[in-house]
Computed example of a mutant assay.
Amino acid sequence: MRRLGDLGDSAGSPGARPSRRSVLGLAGAAAAAVFAAPRASAAPRTSTAPPTSAAHQTNTSPRAYAADTPFDLSAQGTRWIQDKPLHHTTVMQSFAFDERRRQIYAVQVISGGVRLLGEPRAYTHAERSLAGDLCLNRLSWDGAVLDRMYLKGFGHGTAMGAEETADGGIALWAETDANPASGYGRAIGRFRYAAGTVLSAGDPGVTTYRPRPGTTNNAAAIDQAGRRLLLRYGIAGSRRYALYDLDAFAAGDFGPLADFEQPGTELGLPFQGMTLQGGYAYQMLGHSHDPDSPPPSTGDTRLYCIDLRTGAVVQEQPSRTAYALASREPEGLAVLRNEGHGPRLCMGFASGPVGGRRYSLYYLESH
C-alpha cells in the first residue's frame, strides 16, 4: 500500500474534466489513519472443487435464511441523494454503507488522464477499465465526497459490501485480481479503507479469496445482520450465484449454502448490481437512457427479488425510479438496515454527460 499526499489533481475536482498531466504527488495532505489489515489468514484456503453444475444446492440451517419479508419492487423509489459528483467524472459502479459512522462508500473506474504515484505515465479511461483500476470514494451521509483511495487491478466494481468488525472498524469486500482480458475480478478481496493511499491487488493489505477457481466476473455483497455473503461468478458463458456463511468464508471455508443460475440473463441486459437481506437476493439489470429516448421512454431497468431457499424469482419488475434523470443508468444496489425505522433497498443511478457524470441514490421502503 502506498500513501498519496498531494490530492489536488485536476481529476479530483468534482465535476471537472481531468487533465492528462494529472499526477498525485507526495506533498502530505491530511488523510485518515490507516487501519490494520482485516482479520483473516494471510493465505486463505482456496476451494479445489469445480463450481457446482447442479441447478440449485441448499443448506437450510436457520442461520442461512433469516425470516423476513421481501421488498415490494413495484413501488416507486424515493429520492435520497440526487446528482452529486464523485471524485472522478466517471460513473459510480456500486456502493455500500457504514451506518455506525453514517458514511457511504462508492466506487468508480479512474478517469482518463490520471497518473498515480509510481506510474510511468497517465492512462486512458479504457486502459484503466481493462486493468481494473478503481477510485473508492468515502462520502458523507448527504453524499459529499470526504476523501478517497485507489484500488489497482481490482476489477469493475460491480458490487461491494461493508462489514462491521469486532474492533469497531469497517472491512470492505469487493472483487479483485482483474482479468486482463475483461477488467472484471477473478477473486474476492477483503481490506480496510485507508484515505489517500493506493492499494494494489495482491498487496499484504488485501486478503484474497478464490471460492470458485478458474471463474471470472466475481462480485460479492454481504448481509451484515445475517452474516452471509452472496457471490456472483461467471463460468463457461453462464452467470451464477453462490451463498455462503460470511464467517466461514472469511476463514477459507467455501462450502456454499446455495448455488444457482442467475435469472434474467436471457434478456441480454447489462448486470448493474446485487444485494441480499434475510432469505432474499436482489439484482438490477438495464441500459442507460435519456428521457427523450424513443419508447419505452422510461428505460429498460428491471429489478428482481430471488428466493435464496429455492433460487426462484419471487418478483420481476420494470423500474421507473429516477427515469427523468438525463442519461440515467442503473448502477448498484445495497440494503440500508436503517435500524429503528425499517430497512430500505437502495438503488444507485448515474446521470449526466460523458466527462461529467454524477450519481443519485433512491430507495424502496420495506413493507
Rank of each mutant, 00 (worst) to 15 (best):
I235A: 07
D223V: 00
P295S: 13
A219V: 12
A220G: 08
L285W: 09
Y241F: 15
A281T: 03
Q277P: 00
G273Y: 08
F260P: 11
P296C: 13
G255V: 10
G252L: 04
D259I: 08
N217F: 11
D292G: 08
Y280W: 09
T275P: 06
P263E: 02
D253P: 02
P256W: 06
N217D: 10
N218M: 11
L257K: 01
Q224L: 06
A225Q: 09
H289G: 06
A220K: 05
E266G: 11
R240W: 06
R239E: 02
F249C: 07
S293A: 14
P296V: 14
D245G: 04
P294R: 12
Q272S: 02
L243H: 07
A219L: 09
A258F: 05
G278I: 03
I222G: 01
P295A: 14
A281V: 04
G264E: 11
G252P: 01
L231M: 07
G279Q: 11
F249Q: 05
Y280G: 12
G279S: 14
R232E: 04
L267T: 10
D245I: 05
Y241E: 04
G268S: 10
G237T: 10
D292V: 07
Q262N: 03
G252E: 07
S293W: 01
D247C: 03
Q272A: 03
A248Y: 02
F271W: 14
N217G: 03
Y233E: 11
L267R: 15
G278K: 06
F249E: 04
Q224R: 14
S288F: 04
F249I: 04
S238A: 06
A220V: 15
G234Q: 05
T265R: 15
I222F: 02
P256E: 09
F260S: 14
P294W: 03
A242T: 06
Y233M: 12
T265C: 13
P295C: 05
A225G: 01
Q283M: 10
A250L: 15
Y280L: 11
Y282A: 14
G286T: 01
D253A: 15
